[in-house]
Design a binder for these strands. Structure first.
Lengths: 216, 216
DNA sequence: CATTTAACGTTAAAATATTCACATTTTTCA
DNA sequence: TGAAAAATGTGAATATTTTAACGTTAAATG
């Protein structure tokens, strides 16, 4: 599809984690009508040095120009392409508890191209219930939906003890990546990347930061 | 309260981010009745080298013993103390949309000592609605609740454009740390740490990982 | 049209993080 | 009781990440 696929070696994880921040910032500024932005301004907005910003952007196939900086729209487009997020991506959510339902209805997903096309639960009592404009289905139908609708990403939003089991099902069903919204550690084969959203762990990071206080 | 406060220099952020993983693992194993665990086993379970595990644990005031490893319960307790999470911590959630309500009812919070003692929204239409055993209150009552109940942490779960404004209110209300469940970048004074839970950004990390595929 | 300036891309230096390697300690067992 | 084994804590070596420095380029100015 895309012409040259760029990037011989993968972008370091630490950089990849910052790219969405740049993307979001430039998308917002583009909407506000701003045309150009410098690495210093990006750094300012995001709490990074301009040097880090320039290094990071050197991994993205897009060039700024002297004296002006980066074209806001151009940069946003390039970032989105680099991240592989410049297209609609089908997602399923497993777990129809509070968290699963909240995720399904989270507006920002669709805005960023993530289309949720199924929510599943193991509990038959929940099957058939409406969530947004989806109906909860039983986990056994997972494979069918994933194959049928070319789903790329599975989101795990079940109680921690069930996380690995759900991951296994997602994997055999052919999902290409997993977002784990559980505190459990999930194991998957190398070709199925797992990214964790660590809600409780983040609170614990915060308690540590509070404890050590100013000394940061 | 605690005798010696240990740790002269703050623990590196990269280590702090792993401590909750160790904590969760040891808590689970303790519940299963396991008594001892080695750094190699911890690494195995969490996808780290035993060396990283030992280095990390050297920041925690707890010692393993040769030939046995670490006492599971002892390590869990020490980690919890190091993180400052070995006590009940009062939390408020701002935003009574799907995400805010899901967070309030998230079981794991309480299990880890985070007690949610208020949910707020700017929308008067939501005020008074029940969420779990709380009632939604108006944001203007924030300060009162935070001061009155000694709330330490504020969780921001509103639409991104409102995030900074909410952060500002939390800060003037005397919150000591902020968990930002928004994709907005939030600015706060140095003495009020902010930790981000990046749900959409995590999906974008995932699309990149999927794109570069095996080459990781 | 030459000079100045702002900002880039990039190389190199400094700072951090991870891994290795091993001396030391505790336990086991012959 | 003494030798062997397993696992620790730690100092040193690697590897990675961040920051600084600077030559180069495009725009602005007189």
């Amino acid at each position: 599809m895309t012409g040259a696929d760029e990037e011989r070696t993968p972008i370091p994880a630490t950089v990849v984690r910052r790219l969405p921040k740049y993307l979001l910032l430039t998308q917002r500024l583009a909407k506000d009508g701003q045309e150009w932005i410098s690495s210093a301004e990006i750094g300012e907005a995001l709490g990074l040095t301009s040097s880090t910003v320039r290094q990071d952007l050197s991994h993205v196939d897009f060039y700024g120009i002297s004296k002006r900086g980066y074209s806001v729209r151009g940069l946003a487009a390039a970032l989105s392409e680099t991240l592989g997020a410049n297209r609609e991506i089908a997602v399923v959510v497993v777990g129809a508890g509070n968290m699963g339902r909240a995720l399904v209805q989270h507006k920002e997903f669709l805005r960023q191209g993530f289309k949720i096309c199924g929510i599943f639960d193991s509990d038959p009592a929940l099957a058939g219930e409406s969530v947004g404009d989806l109906k909860v289905r039983l986990i056994r139908e997972l494979t069918e939906v994933i194959c049928g609708q070319d789903v790329e990403i599975g989101v795990i939003a079940v109680p921690a003890p069930a996380a690995q089991e759900v991951a296994d099902r997602l994997i055999v069903s052919g999902v290409r990546g997993i977002l784990n919204v559980t505190s459990a550690h999930v194991v998957a084969p190398r070709h199925v990347p797992v990214v964790d959203v660590r809600i409780v762990a983040s609170l614990q990071e915060l308690t540590y930061a509070i404890k050590v206080g100013g000394r940061r």
